[in-house]
Amino acid sequence: MTPLGKDIEVGAKRIGDYTNALPLSAAKEDVELRLVGTRCGRGLCLHLAAMGLRPGALIRVVRTHGPGPLIVAMGNTRMALGRGIAHHLFVVPIEDHRDS
């Protein structure tokens, strides 16, 4: 069962596969995450994908600013994401995939 509402359309199949998906905005700092789905307008989704934020990408929250934006690491790239968009990116933590 997925805890997500009905209004998730784009990438719904992927998100639905995970029971422990949570919005990026709720993720803790310094935990390895896998992006499993995005819920946003088509233009924005494609733009995010072009920047590398696409389902399957491995990311990590470097810093969150309370109710403000957050910084995400993806490989060697650092990206600033507004809180609003972070609500719409869904991730699963990769607990057994931490490098030592």
């Binding site: 805890p3 997500l4 509402g5 949570l22 919005p23 905005s25 709720a26 109710p67 809180r83 609003g84 609500h87 719409h88």
Partner: peptide
């Protein structure tokens, strides 16, 4: 941000 908040109204 309340309008977009997925935590609102028990959505998540």
């Amino acid at each position: 941000c309340s309008k977009n908040c997925p935590f609102r109204e028990g959505r998540l």
